[in-house]
Amino acid sequence: MQRILFGNHSTQMPAIARHIDHHRYEASFAPFDAVDLSRFDLVVPLRVGQIEGARGGRAVLPTADLVALCDDKLALNLWLIDHGFGDTVPTLLGARPTDYPYIRKTRRGDFGFGCAMIRGPGENDGSDHPDVFRQRAVAGADEYVLHLLRVGGTIRFQVAYRYDMGQPLGVRGAVDRPASITPADPGPALGPCTAILEALGYDGNCCFNYKWEEGALRILELNRRFGGSLVGVVTEYVTAHLAAL
């Protein structure tokens, strides 16, 4: 039986323990600096902050530079524009936008923290902090996630989901929760997303968040972590990651 060490995550740990195939894998959960990583066949960080600590174990992980780039939402948008993927980026706006609706974002953070949807004049934009930027909002109740594991230039695992947000301008995360989550076919999103990983030289696990706008792909974020919607297919993910090693 192969031994898998996952990082700590209060909600994902019990779900992983419930879904993983215990006939094939022995799952453990612990801070990476508290155990001997060499005892495990695979180490899986569940938070971005755990990636560096996982480097002493068996895992395919993005480089520290790529983690830092993707962690900075504005820097990633600018990289995409500079490298020929600008048509996937919702328009970046100045400090005092007059086009509505738009979303105010912090450069770093997840689960919707630091984000606010500004729907029209008179709404409180709230911040002049240098780590805040603004971007045209992409309307639509359907938001998609595409999880990819890329190793040595090859996609070794993929799964996509559709989130029905129940409203056209929701900010998925702590405040706005999806009305439903269903498996999805990434279809034409797969090509641009894999091309972006190729241009980045990205190996490891990642998750694209995106919407469709009149048939055009609009990328909202590129996350480097495991992602909660992988929990239900954790056995398949672990199997693919081990095979890639």
Rank of each mutant, 00 (worst) to 15 (best):
P45A: 09
I196C: 05
G228C: 10
V238Y: 03
R24I: 09
C207N: 12
Q135K: 01
A216F: 02
K73H: 04
P188W: 07
L76V: 08
A137R: 00
A160P: 01
Q2C: 08
P101H: 05
Y163K: 15
E198D: 15
Q12E: 15
A244V: 11
R47G: 08
V171A: 05
T11A: 13
C115H: 02
Q158S: 13
A116F: 03
G140T: 08
W79T: 08
R162Q: 13
L69Q: 09
R225V: 11
C193I: 05
L242Y: 03
Q50T: 10
E236T: 11
G191N: 06
A15I: 09
G170I: 03
G86K: 08
N205R: 08
L148E: 06
Q50M: 12
G126F: 09
C207H: 03
Q158G: 14
K105I: 04
A34D: 14
P31I: 12
L245P: 00
R107N: 13
T98W: 03
F85K: 03
K211I: 03
R162W: 02
G57C: 10
G56W: 11
F208S: 01
T239W: 00
D142P: 00
P97K: 07
L149G: 01
G112R: 08
A30W: 11
A174E: 11
I51R: 01
H22S: 13
I196F: 04
Q12G: 01
L230F: 06
D203R: 05
N8F: 03
Y237L: 13
A59L: 10
D185G: 07
L148M: 13
F6N: 02
V132Q: 00
T63V: 07
T182K: 10
I219P: 00
P62H: 11
D164C: 11
D176V: 04
Y25D: 05
L92A: 04
N209A: 11
